[in-house]
Amino acid sequence: MLFVLARRVANIVPTLAAVIAVVFLLFSVLPGSFVSAMNEDGRTTIDPAVMERMRKEMGLDDPLPERFAKYVAHTVVGDLGTSFRTKEPVTKLIGARLWPSLKLVFAAMSIAIAIGVPLGFIAALRPGSAVDTVSMVGAISGLSLSQFWLGLMMMYLFALTLKWLPSFGYGDGGIRYLILPAVALGVGPMALLARTTRAAVLDVLNADFVRTARSKGMSERRVVEWHVMRNALVLVITTIGLQFGSLMGAAVVVEKLFSWPGVGSLLVDSVFQRDIPTVQGCILLIVIFFLVINTLVDMAYVAIDPRIRYR
């Protein structure tokens, strides 16, 4: 187990190095800068001398290799730089958004797992039944729905019409404010999990070892619990891991719609305003989150499937 963990952690380092280099280079060649972006709304004018000074202050005119070297040197010691916009450390900006983001992602994923996995299981155990048909139609709909549209419809229904929940915002950070964005974000992964679970279970149900177990006289419940669930879980956990890891970045639309103060909305705002240190910091965080989740998933494989342990 420790060997697998060490190997996975060692793999993270080159991945992070590649991400740092690619993000830095991409934003270096992208047209526009923080200074020119100050007039993106057409509502202000910036003096050219001030623009020049801002560029100098932010190091935008320094040679690319010099900027890259500085960026790498700071990043490896955990200094993500200073935001062009707020003049605050990027770590502080991200720190303020991290908890709301994690709350949203964990809530969305909990909804997805709690509904998607059992639904997929039930559908697979009764293939062709009404439950299977309805749940799979629901899953396909869930996958096809735009988060924006679904979120807006939920706002109309649960906030405006039924008056059950607030339509937007972070409020006191309580669950009332979390429900709508979490559901809007969780429906997609939930649908995907339902379909994946169904496919995985059906696959295992048709495997030779299941037939052997049944022929030995093992009860259906025991076959499902001991053989089917455990074997199907590998694919299910892979899907959970991939979805979990990507949700923090994918939450952008939901965060913006519900004015949820997460990392996703910070990232988008920073991209449009060319606040490069913040963009780099946000992407780095999202990538680290993805890699950590996937390392945990790898560890889970080892726990679930002994065959992986001996490889």
Binding site: P31, G32, S33, S36, A37, M38, N39, E40, D41, G42, I46, P48, F272, Q273, R274
Partner: peptide, 12 residues
């Protein structure tokens, strides 16, 4: 078509 972010730069 360009991003609104770069309009000023193009004009300048």
């Amino acid at each position: 078509l360009v991003e609104a972010t770069v309009l000023t730069e193009i004009l300048m």
